[in-house]
Design a protein around this nucleic acid. Structure first.
Lengths: 216, 216
DNA sequence: ATCAAGTTTGACCATCCAGTCAAGAAGCTT
DNA sequence: AAGCTTCTTGACTGGATGGTCAAACTTGAT
């Protein structure tokens, strides 16, 4: 007879249910990993279930046994990503030394570009397309967080502890500079030579840049 | 009977043939403009000819009367874009004042993000996907240009006319910071409020940033 | 006005692709 | 080993999409 979906996968309104069996856990992870690979380079519409299935080493119907549809896979990936995407900014500590804190934030973001370039590209793809799927998240979570941290930066600037620069542009600059190494890795690789690590030398450069920018 | 393609459109190995009639010129431009809109937000695979035709106010077969296929439209757009994409960097003048020259380069790039955000996103999409269509261009044109200008920056640094910073990362930083305002405009708009111009305040910020970074 | 060339389109086709289904294979439990 | 559940897949469907074609319409030169 036709196999019913396992309970946990029936309706995954929000991600985070844990698979029951070991096979479930393993295959869901394999699929998400393959999907991340494909979605991050081709975008949502450009990716096909066949590609993902091939990448995962599973059959397409098998994919759809674990996930209701293409959209669900994509949403689960984004949800998983967004969960941790804001942590570096959240960690910006009002009690710390301003320059140290901002520098540490930049380093955490750079480390994320190094460790999770595919996630960065998945995010970039989503934003390029107008952020249709994560607009609510950006408005409800990211925006207030950025507003709060911008206020903190303003306070620091007012107190003369960092240079008086626009806090929003400061944050955007950190995003732009760090994510660039993941999002444009293909271009950087072609320019610097293919054996070259795109991030080589990035950290000292960014340290110099922000040291000079932030000095009061 | 079946209409043969007009001469100029027969085989457009490289873009740049000029249309014969006024209608040709007008409609090709309308189509390219519509295609830019659609490709830049949905990527190559994500865009459909129907979408482009709708955006252009033409029928799909009519689109294909002016362009051989979807790929040709995309290639023509990229070719047209790349033609002017490197001009700002090419203009970096060895005889000028280093800081003024670099600052002017940054301003030219920022101006391109303001004037041609769709082109920037088209380019970003292409790179995100691994630059499959413009890899030859990057290797044959962009790379040598960047190498040459990096050498120039190194010379300036050696002469103590700018701070001793990695020239490649300096160039990448200008790309990242300026293009970010076009590529991530959707995100910036949601954070700063939708009536807000994403580029508002960007120029003074970047001026401060590069002034401080470049000072010897 | 006439005619040929250039332009436009409705109808159509082949392929691709997300998603279904029923049957079979593999695991688990006793 | 039996019997139940979970997992896997070949074959299929319906709709979207890139592209074709022949007929009709428009334009411009004479």
């Amino acid at each position: 007879m036709s196999a019913p979906r396992p309970e946990f996968a029936r309706k995954s309104g929000s991600a985070g249910q844990r698979p029951r069996s070991r096979i479930q856990k393993r295959n869901r992870q394999i699929i998400l990993d393959a999907a991340l690979e494909v979605f991050s380079t081709h975008g949502f519409r450009g990716a096909t279930l066949d590609q993902i299935a091939l990448e995962a080493g599973l059959s397409k119907p098998n994919l759809l046994y674990y996930f209701d549809n293409k959209d669900t896979i994509h949403r689960d990936l984004l949800t998983q990503l967004l969960d941790t995407w804001l942590d570096p900014l959240r960690m910006l500590d009002p009690r710390g030394d301003p320059q140290t804190e901002i520098m540490a934030y930049m380093r955490r973001k750079l480390e994320m570009s190094r460790a999770y370039p595919r996630e960065s590209r998945l995010f970039a793809n989503e934003i390029l397309q107008g952020a249709p799927r994560i607009e609510p998240f950006i408005r409800a979570e990211l925006r207030p967080l950025v507003d709060a941290k911008a206020q903190l930066l303003t306070d620091w600037a007012r107190a003369g502890r960092i240079a008086p620069i626009d806090p929003y542009h400061l944050i955007f600059s950190i995003w732009a500079l760090t994510q660039h190494y993941a999002d444009f890795a293909a271009q950087i690789g072609m320019i610097r030579g293919d054996g070259h690590d795109p991030l080589d030398g990035a950290e000292p450069f960014l340290e110099a840049l922000y040291t000079r920018l932030l000095a009061p």
